[in-house]
């Protein structure tokens, strides 16, 4: 128990120290690298708090996607922050004091950390999600069953948020600004390094295979559509970085990406509509196999996880392409 507290406090202290350093740092490249570190430590903390799925996602998103995007933007803009005028600090300090004060005030009546008798733990929901779900859905990873079935609508919403982000980035950086001359130059010279080229070529199948494993293994262990999608995307990002954007976009043309972005929400909502047509409620997967509810749930969960995977991979890749195309055309 004490080791747990010790590790917990240490990780939190590292997090706070990193956050403070980031806030004081004016070189934004360094700050970006520190945010990656911050995410990595956060992921460790999530593991410590038994949230393995969340840790997986935070590692993939915070260390991977966010960092790549931030670096891309830094190469497009200035990487040095101007000095913050003293006057600006005051409102921030006041807001932080009030907000922090309210939170500390609230913490006096927050339940004890880790106690098994908190309202969260004693609510009948706990039993539904941990025990009842084994009969209703029959998937060991309860996070997956809550995510994809009990709270399937939230997950549809989450997928739509990703879709929205993809559309928004396309609208902002998309096909509009694409100077033709920029496409002629092969800018990224990483491809000249044989080691990189060969290693990337060898890694690609494994990355994609791992993504598929994560997608289909989400029922039994940490993982699922979102994590798989991010891994898929990171495979393409790596390919694009080493072999150049043109090659990457030949493999995955823009038009295909457009379709894939839209396929996910349509498929996910389509599953729900199919359930309605089969006589159930929206997203009631039981209707897929009327005799064996658990089997129906399995089919439904697999379908929606695949829908998430496809759209997340397509959105993340096209967001990366969007930023990277800007980088190339601005040189």
């Amino acid at each position: 128990m004490t080791t747990f507290v010790l590790i917990n406090v240490t990780l939190l202290a590292i997090l706070i120290a990193t956050a403070l350093t980031i806030s004081g740092m004016r070189t934004l490249y360094a700050a970006t690298m520190l945010t990656a570190l911050f995410s990595l430590v956060t992921a460790c903390l999530f593991v410590l708090l038994d949230a393995v799925d969340v840790a997986f996602t935070e590692a993939a998103v915070g260390v991977g996607i966010s960092t790549v995007l931030l670096l891309g933007v830094l190469s497009l803009t200035r990487s040095r922050e101007a000095v913050t005028p003293r006057l600006r600090r005051l409102p921030g300090a006041v807001v932080v004091l009030f907000t922090g004060g309210t939170l500390i005030y609230a913490s006096q009546d927050l339940p004890e950390f880790g106690s098994p008798t908190t309202p969260v733990q004693t609510h009948p929901l706990t039993d539904v999600y941990l025990r009842q779900s084994q009969e209703d859905i029959g998937i060991p990873n309860t996070v997956t069953s809550v995510l994809a079935s009990y709270r399937g609508l939230d997950t549809l919403g989450e997928l739509v948020v990703v879709f929205t982000a993809g559309v928004a980035v396309l609208a902002l950086l998309g096909p509009l600004m694409q100077p033709a001359e920029a496409r002629e130059r092969e800018v990224l010279d990483l491809v000249d390094y044989r080691v990189l080229r060969v290693v990337t070529g060898m890694l690609m199948p494994f990355i994609l295979l791992f993504a598929l494993y994560v997608l289909f293994h989400g029922d039994f262990g940490p993982g699922g559509g979102f994590q798989a999608g991010v891994i898929f995307a990171s495979g393409f990002v790596l390919y694009g970085l080493v072999f150049g954007l043109d090659r990457a976009q030949q493999v995955l043309p823009r038009r295909v990406l457009w379709v894939l972005i839209a396929v996910g929400p349509v498929l996910y909502a389509g599953v729900g509509v199919a359930n309605m047509l089969l006589g159930g409620a929206f997203l009631d997967y039981d209707t897929f196999a009327p005799d064996d509810a658990a089997a129906g749930q399995h089919i439904g969960i697999l379908l929606v996880e695949s829908a998430i995977g496809v759209t997340v991979a397509a959105v993340m890749t096209s967001i990366f392409f969007g930023f990277a195309n800007r980088v190339e055309s601005s040189r």
């Binding site: 379709v259 839209a262 409620a281």
Partner: peptide, 21 residues
């Protein structure tokens, strides 16, 4: 199903806007 259709129809129209282009 009206309560869900209320939200679902505009939600599903969005990806189709992207598909039809």
């Amino acid at each position: 199903h009206l309560p869900v259709l209320q939200v679902l129809v505009p939600l599903v129209c969005a990806p189709f806007c992207v598909l039809l282009r």
